[in-house]
Amino acid sequence: MVLDGSLLERARREDARYWAEHRRPISSDELRKRLKVGSKRARALVTQLGEQVRSSRLALEAGQAPTETV
């Protein structure tokens, strides 16, 4: 599924807000409600957010600066 860059950025912001409050990543159902998107799109966004977090953590562990993926 192709994800719009602005939608992905909104998802990042919602994930950050959710993390600050709950100390865990946002669920696809919560993201669906906040962004008013369908469940399939919300799951795709959560998957992409998770991949970006994992790649950033791996880069930090390897002593590299994390890269921004869009």
Rank of each mutant, 00 (worst) to 15 (best):
V2T: 06
A20Y: 02
S56R: 14
I26A: 09
S27L: 08
V53G: 10
A16Q: 15
S56F: 03
L3F: 05
L60Q: 12
S28A: 14
D29W: 02
R43H: 09
Q48H: 06
D15Y: 02
M1K: 02
A11C: 02
V37P: 07
D4K: 10
Q48S: 06
A42I: 05
P25G: 08
S56V: 00
L45T: 08
A20I: 00
L35H: 07
R13G: 04
T69W: 04
P66A: 07
G63H: 13
A16T: 10
M1F: 04
L49Y: 11
R32P: 01
L60N: 08
R10A: 15
G63E: 14
A20T: 03
R24H: 09
V53A: 15
G38M: 05
L31T: 05
A11D: 10
L35D: 09
K40Q: 13
R54W: 13
A16R: 15
V46A: 15
E61M: 14
T47P: 03
E51V: 12
L49G: 09
K40N: 12
R13W: 01
R24Y: 00
L8W: 02
T67M: 09
T47L: 14
S39L: 07
L3N: 03
S55P: 04
K40A: 08
S56K: 13
A59V: 00
V37R: 04
E21V: 00
R23I: 00
L31R: 04
T67C: 10
Q52L: 09
L58M: 13
E61I: 05
G5P: 13
A65V: 05
A11F: 01
Q52E: 14
Q48M: 08
T69K: 11
R57V: 08
A11P: 10
R34C: 07
R41P: 01
E14G: 06
A42H: 06
A44Q: 13
E21W: 05
E30C: 03
E21F: 01
P66R: 06
W19T: 00
A65D: 13
M1L: 06
E51Q: 15
S56L: 01
S56E: 09
K36S: 08
E51M: 14
A42R: 05
L3P: 03
A59E: 14
K36G: 05
S27Y: 01
S6Q: 13
L31E: 10
R23D: 07
S28D: 13
T47K: 15
E30T: 04
Q52G: 03
V37C: 07
T47E: 15
I26C: 12
A62Q: 15
V2D: 15
A65R: 12
G38H: 09
S55I: 02
V37W: 02
A62C: 04
H22S: 01
D29F: 00
D29Y: 03
L35W: 01
I26K: 06
S28Q: 11
R12A: 12
G63A: 09
S27H: 01
K36M: 04
R41T: 13
V46R: 15
V46Y: 12
L3D: 10
L8Q: 10
R34Q: 11
L58V: 08
G38T: 07
R54Y: 14
A59I: 01
G5Q: 12
M1C: 03
V2S: 12
V70S: 14
Q48F: 08
E51S: 12
E9L: 09
R57E: 10
D29L: 09
K33M: 03
E30W: 00
K36I: 00
H22P: 01
A16G: 08
R43E: 11
R43Y: 04
S56H: 04
G63D: 13
